[in-house]
Amino acid sequence: MKLAIIGASPGQMYLCKKAKEKGIETISIAWEKGAVCKDLVDKFYPISITEYDEILRICQEENIDGVVSNASDKTSEQVAYVAEAMGLHCTKRSVIQVTRDKTITREISQNVDGLTPIRFYNYKGGASLFLPCVVKPVPGAGKRGVSFVNTEDEFSDAIRYANAEPHTAILIEEFINGREVSVESISFEGKHYVIQITDKDTTGAPHFLELAHHQPSTLCKDVQDKIRFTVPNLLSAVGFENGATHIELKIDQYNNLYLIEINARGGGDEISNQLVELSTGYDYVGAMIDVALGIFKEPVIPEHNYSGVYYLCQQTADKIPFFLSSITKSWLVELTMDFDRIEFNNATRNRDRNGFLIYKSDHKITETD
């Protein structure tokens, strides 16, 4: 079988390696600059991922059996374009576009069984219609352009901050106070499987920068069961059929569920590439490939471990001793950090962070371990 992988950034590395392990012939299509996956595939085409028709032509010429990408909003729509044109397993491009439009997904989510509706509107100018609120660009991910607002002065600053990001509109939505989680799922031919629920540590207001992720979630069983019931309803409501999704939710003190956003891809921050398999033993990246090739089998979760990732930035500089001591620990999976020259940014977006630590253990790892 032959698989096309769109993109060659670090986020696609695990797809390339996994396909090789499975004995699948691979081609990669991406801009050559920064293409770290170039040597991990059988054939590499140095073409921008924005060249939709040229990529389709190549995939048709190569007679591929599936097309896939992961952890990238930029490549998910291209994957759908190629797969749909070639009659391969995918979620339709129009549905991918819907999931990237936070206003449309918000409208759909208002009537999904299991989700609690919230107030929202597209900004047209003037003062906010309600406070507190969250201001965010309608497209986008990685917390780019997102701000919490509690006063009118903060609202003006938040609009300017959102306007610094590429967008077609700005969404204003009610702020929900509560815990934030993400839900990692896989879908095949319209049937949806929740694989894991991830707890998130963030900076909170104003920009909600993600500082750590931990699996499994510590939410009580009733709430986790509610999430596992609700997420398939949501995915069916938006028309999602095939592939991985990373859905962000808020849970308030009354255990009501609120949608933050739908991402039609595996989670970034090593969630889909490493954490899910570390905590469950389920080959999540391999499952993405199987979906694309149309050979997917119903998931079996063989293990129940703890895994997580901690990030370094100015807000977590006090964790440097924890990072340093982790080098000798049996639970350490990966550590990325420049110990000779650490320049901490005052991070406001996920891409501003300076390094990370990944663990796997029989318990949640904290600074006391």
Rank of each mutant, 00 (worst) to 15 (best):
S128F: 06
I186V: 14
V146G: 00
S185W: 00
R119S: 10
E154F: 07
C133S: 14
N150G: 15
F175D: 02
L129A: 09
L115Q: 01
N150D: 13
F148E: 02
S128P: 14
N163A: 15
R119C: 12
P132A: 08
E154C: 05
A169M: 05
P166E: 13
S182G: 00
G114Q: 07
D153A: 15
P117I: 11
A127K: 13
S156P: 01
D157W: 04
S128M: 08
D157P: 02
V134E: 00
F175S: 09
N177M: 12
E154R: 03
V138F: 03
A127P: 09
V146T: 01
A169L: 08
T151W: 07
S147M: 13
C133W: 04
V181Y: 00
G125Q: 08
F130M: 08
K136P: 03
G140S: 08
G142H: 04
V138W: 00
R144F: 04
L171C: 06
V138E: 03
K124Y: 09
I159M: 12
V183E: 00
A141C: 09
G114H: 10
F188A: 05
S147F: 07
I186Q: 02
P137M: 08
H167L: 10
P117Q: 04
F130Q: 04
T168H: 14
D153C: 11
A169S: 10
G178Q: 04
A162P: 01
Y123L: 05
A162H: 01
F130A: 05
L171M: 15
L171D: 01
V134T: 02
P166L: 11
K136D: 05
L129M: 11
R179E: 06
S128A: 15
I176R: 10
P137Q: 07
G140H: 13
A169C: 07
V135L: 11
T116C: 14
V149C: 08
P117A: 11
A169D: 14
K136C: 05
T116V: 09
N177D: 14
V149R: 01
V183K: 00
E180D: 10
K136V: 05
R179D: 07
V138Y: 02
L129N: 12
A164E: 15
Y123F: 12
S182W: 00
I172E: 02
H167D: 11
G142P: 03
N163D: 14
P137E: 09
N163V: 08
Y123T: 02
E173K: 07
V149G: 01
S185E: 01
N177Y: 12
D157Q: 14
T151I: 10
A127R: 14
L131K: 05
Y123G: 02
G145A: 07
F155N: 01
F130D: 02
G114M: 13
R144E: 15
E174Y: 05
A141V: 03
E165F: 11
P132N: 04
L131H: 06
N163M: 12
T116Q: 14
G145M: 02
P137S: 11
A127M: 07
I176S: 07
D157H: 12
E174L: 14
S147G: 05
E184W: 00
A141M: 10
G125F: 15
A158M: 07
I176L: 09
P137C: 08
V149H: 03
S156E: 12
F155W: 08
L129D: 09
L131Q: 06
Y121W: 09
V183P: 00
H167S: 13
Y123V: 03
I118H: 04
S156R: 13
I186T: 07
T116I: 06
V138L: 06
G142C: 11
G178S: 12
A162G: 15
